[in-house]
């Protein structure tokens, strides 16, 4: 890299930080500028921030699976969104047929999708290991096929999964109480959304432990750095690949089963969540768990803060912001915030 590029990089990064600082200052002003009373911006700030954290948690669960698969195998699994949707529908079906309790439904959906992903890997992706583009195209095709099959089987209507009774309903936070209007009563937030945030933390901790403390984690970390070398050292890379694909797919399934409760299950969500996962891991850097966490946080907060805090008519363009973030990060850091050239 030449010195010119470095200067351009620093200038770009500086501009990025400046924009970020301005955005945060703007949100802070809008949230706290009108005081801390019930009529100020604080109650809404709490609402949208908690919603944003929920979404960030969900995005992290899904994207961590995506980035794990990519980190070890360099497979860009464009069918990851389909696995997410499959997990959601599976949880829905388990509940509809009153097959098992809600909790077991989530566990079973997660395992089912993990298994499904592992089979997909063995059938379609094992023999062309290393041909990134071909695998991306194959998984695009698979995503289309899965999407159509799910539409044919589950229909086009929207569904959602009912949470267990203990988590149904809202947590009354007992602060900022309104006496009238649409938002009469104290500040509330759905119990289940707290669960989603908790699940993300658990998944993150679990993945860190697995990656740092287990032999499998060692192989994955080695594989991210130099897959050929790991394989040359006599490690059964195929087994590790299969396991990584199982875990990565299972995480997509888990995300689906959780999202089925507080979002909706509908055809087309597969493509949407694939895009979300892509944005998260590209911003954070493919293969990096910390990057995925940061990317998920950025995406979740932008999605809920933007409509709330963009001035007036601009809130219609909030959806564009997430993709502008992506383009900006990639133009300054071509491999994402924590990514490395491979």
């Amino acid at each position: 890299m030449t010195w010119r590029v470095r200067i351009a990089d620093s200038a770009g990064a500086a501009a990025g930080l400046l924009v970020l600082a301005f955005a945060l200052a703007w949100v802070g002003y809008k949230a706290f500028g009108a005081g801390f009373g019930v009529n100020g911006g604080v109650p809404d700030w709490i609402r949208v921030t908690l919603s944003g954290l929920t979404l960030a948690g969900l995005y992290f669960v899904i994207a961590s699976g995506f980035t794990l698969i990519f980190g070890l195998m360099r497979v860009v699994n464009m069918a990851h969104g389909s696995l997410y949707l499959l997990g959601a529908y599976a949880a829905f079906e388990f509940q509809q047929h009153q097959f098992v309790s809600w909790g077991w439904g989530v566990v079973l959906s997660t395992l089912l999708v993990g298994f499904f992903g592992a089979v997909m890997h063995q059938l379609f992706l094992r023999w062309n290991q290393g041909q990134e583009l071909r695998q991306a195209l194959i998984t695009i095709a698979l995503a289309f096929i899965f999407g159509d099959q799910m539409l044919a089987y589950f229909g086009g209507a929207q569904h959602y999964v009912r949470p267990p009774d203990a988590l149904e309903g809202n947590a009354d936070l007992g602060i900022f109480c309104n006496t009238g209007g649409i938002f009469a009563g104290c500040l509330t937030f759905p119990w289940f959304r707290f669960v989603a945030i908790g699940a993300a933390v658990v998944v993150a901790l679990g993945l860190v432990v697995v990656l740092k403390k287990t032999r499998f984690g060692m192989i994955v970390r080695g594989g991210v750095d130099d897959g050929a070398m790991v394989s040359a050292l006599g490690v059964n890379i195929q087994a590790a690949n299969a396991l990584a694909f199982f875990i990565g797919s299972a995480l997509a399934g888990l995300g689906g089963a959780l999202a089925g409760v507080f979002l909706v299950i509908a055809p087309g969500e597969d493509a949407d969540f694939l895009l979300k996962a892509l944005v998260v891991v590209i911003v954070g850097g493919m293969g990096s768990l910390g990057g995925a966490a940061l990317g998920a946080l950025a995406l979740g907060m932008i999605e809920t803060w933007a409509p709330q805090y963009l001035p007036g008519a601009w809130s219609n363009y909030s959806i564009l912001l997430t993709f502008l973030l992506l383009v900006f990060v990639l133009s300054v850091r071509p491999f994402g915030l924590f990514g490395r050239a491979t």
Partner: peptide, 8 residues
Amino acid sequence: GTKDYSGF
């Protein structure tokens, strides 16, 4: 295609 209507 909005997923989470909270911000709206």
